[in-house]
Design a protein around this nucleic acid. Structure first.
Length: 579
DNA sequence: ATGGCTATCCATGTTTACCAGCTGGTAAA
């Protein structure tokens, strides 16, 4: 049993215990254990074999025993007993935003509702709004959240799919005579969500690679298997297609299967006007009728008289016209990134110390790191009171002095309250190097209120960056209702940067926002929002969004050196206000 | 249920906002 599955069991148990109104500290213990297991860098099976389960903080006698039972029998008696006390599907109700344990239990007890379908029906029939302390507005809210949940399609976030593809590629890559293994499709274009994983490659003996692929340990089901192509379902329900192709036409095949469809259609239209016919196997001039093959995409695009178009740009957004004029952007790369603008530490809800984060940043070759823990308003995240903030600043300063190979900035991720005021008084902001403001509450405000609220925060001279501007969580929470164009204009006017949050379930701003923001001259930062040292590696997802938004290094503040950055920080409006 | 110090014990995340009913329960972050 994998860690993720075990963590899920404890998460479910915590939910069920909450429905039972069991000891809240016990519930919290399960939640903590679940969270810890999710973030564990090693498999619990190995830890158990070494007899070291109890050494993990938050795992004591009882939970260690439960983990052992799960790992050895694949089942957990206590879990099954708990589940039998509630109807199947009650967890489904808890997954709907706006429904907590109290409401879930009441819906079941008073209306017999135990799944989302019944709930939707009951709301439409007006049964829910009639219950004590549940009115029209609440019912309407819940209905909206149900619709969000329904709209979430089968696509999975890139951040979950990419590691799966990379693991497979690394496993198959060790086979002799295998070359060019790469993800194609939307994954290669770094789209924020992925349908199926499509992997391509060439090999001296394609069939042996296909066979090895179908036998990989993570494969749960083989849907189809031929000499050059196979489709399988892997562990977490993802479909993976492997396609082994001819080396001679690898370039045009990769191009074809990378898409997007819109890009390829536009490319084909243009080629037709040049008297060329495109197929996945190559280019055929109508005049000669002879197929020309391409081993590389560069040669393929070159034959069409086009500059090489990076996959992230292949979305049918004028990239072909730009390539024609040799006018494609020189896209920002991960290697251009010199620092991270948004990380958490154990001072709020992060797992690692300031020093551990600093070391990880230095190991990535960064010049600087902005520590931006939560402000007091985010109580659940153990947000910093002004007093603790000052202690943390002192510690950051001391550490910064001690570490001579990385520059640490004292930052904060400060709450923007419902009225647009910030979580600390203005004079406290002056003590902080980098103020990152963000909305974390009252997300249901209408556009006028929300836009005004955020602009008020942007206009605060102490604020440098607006984090995750639309607050969306892919497949979980819709973006806030906000006039994003107004936000962009306010950001330019106030010289405030907007963040591209690199967390795979956020990617916020998203690609088309970045495209527009860049056009308007908005300064952009990429922040990983890392809650552990490992998560600094999420930077590549943020860079992917920036690339899809046609950003060059100069559009992204993270590419600036520490000297230039200091200049930006001093240059912002806060200086103007002091004068 | 866990972990730490006072141990066969005791403390353990908090603030903000919304909504239903006119102060406080509930949920989200």
């Amino acid at each position: 049993m994998k860690n993720a599955a075990i963590a899920q069991v404890f998460r479910d148990m915590a939910d069920l215990l909450e429905l039972k109104e069991d000891n809240p500290f016990k519930i919290r213990a399960y939640q903590r254990a679940s969270h810890t297991i999710d973030d564990l860098p090693v498999e619990l099976e190995q830890v158990m074999d070494e007899g070291r389960l109890r050494e993990i903080h938050g795992i004591g006698e009882a939970i260690a025993r439960k983990i052992t039972e799960l790992l050895t029998t694949g089942r957990l008696e206590a879990y099954e007993k708990l589940r039998s006390e509630f109807p199947e599907g009650i967890n489904e109700l808890l997954a709907v935003q706006g429904i907590g344990p109290k409401t879930a239990v009441r819906l079941y007890n008073e209306l017999g509702i135990s799944n989302v379908d019944d709930l939707e029906k009951a709301i439409r029939d007006g049964q829910v709004a009639g219950l004590y302390r549940l009115g029209e507005k609440t019912a309407e809210n819940i209905l909206r959240h149900i619709q969000t949940l329904r709209r979430k399609d089968a696509r999975v976030p890139l951040g979950r799919a990419l590691p799966v593809a990379e693991e497979i590629i690394s496993e198959l890559g060790s086979i002799a005579g295998v070359h060019n293994l790469t993800p194609a499709g939307s994954m290669r274009r770094f789209k924020e969500t992925i349908g199926d994983i499509d992997i391509m490659g060439t090999a001296d003996d394609p069939e042996s690679v296909i066979k090895a692929f179908a036998r990989l340990p993570q494969v749960e089901e083989v849907l189809a298997k031929g000499a050059t192509k196979a489709s399988v379902i892997v562990g977490d329900g993802l479909q993976v297609d492997l396609r082994m192709v001819e080396h001679d036409s690898y370039g045009s095949l990769l191009q074809h299967f990378t898409g997007s469809k819109e890009h390829n259609v536009a490319l084909r239209d243009r080629a037709v006007r040049q008297g060329l016919s495109l197929s996945e196997y190559g280019i055929t001039p109508v005049r000669t009728g002879k197929l020309e093959k391409f081993t590389s995409e560069e040669a393929f695009y070159g034959r069409l008289g086009l500059q090489y178009i990076p996959p992230e740009l292949r979305e049918g957004r004028n990239e072909i016209e730009a390539a024609e004029k040799n006018d494609l952007p020189d896209l920002v790369e991960v290697s251009d990134i010199k620092g991270d603008f948004h990380v958490h530490t154990e001072w709020s809800d992060g797992h690692d110390s300031i020093e551990a984060m600093a070391n990880a940043a230095r190991d990535r070759g960064y010049q600087y790191l902005v520590i931006a823990d939560h402000s007091a308003g985010r109580g659940i995240a153990h947000g910093l009171s002004v007093e603790r903030l000052r202690q943390q600043i002192a510690e950051i300063r001391a550490l910064d002095k001690r570490l001579d190979d990385i520059r640490l900035f004292a930052g904060i991720e400060i709450d923007i309250r419902a009225d647009g005021t910030l979580d600390y008084p203005d004079e406290v902001l002056q003590e902080i190097d980098v103020v990152v403001a963000a909305v974390h509450s009252a997300m249901g405000q209408d556009s006028e209120k929300m836009t005004g609220r955020i602009i008020r925060a942007l206009e605060n001279p102490g604020v440098h960056i607006l984090a995750h501007p639309t607050c969306r969580l892919i497949g979980v929470r819709e973006p806030i209702d906000v006039d994003i164009e107004e936000i962009f204009r306010a950001a330019v006017r106030t010289n405030t940067a907007l963040e591209i949050n690199a967390m795979p379930d956020r990617l916020d701003l998203k690609d088309i926002h970045v495209l527009r923001a860049r056009e308007l001259g908005v300064k952009l930062t990429i922040g990983t929002d890392a809650h552990s040292a490992d998560s600094l590696g999420l930077m590549r997802f943020g860079v992917g969004v920036a690339r899809r938004g046609w950003c060059q290094p100069e559009h992204i503040l993270n590419t600036r050196s520490v000297e230039e950055l200091g200049k930006f920080l001093r240059q912002t409006h806060r200086e103007g206000v002091r004068n």
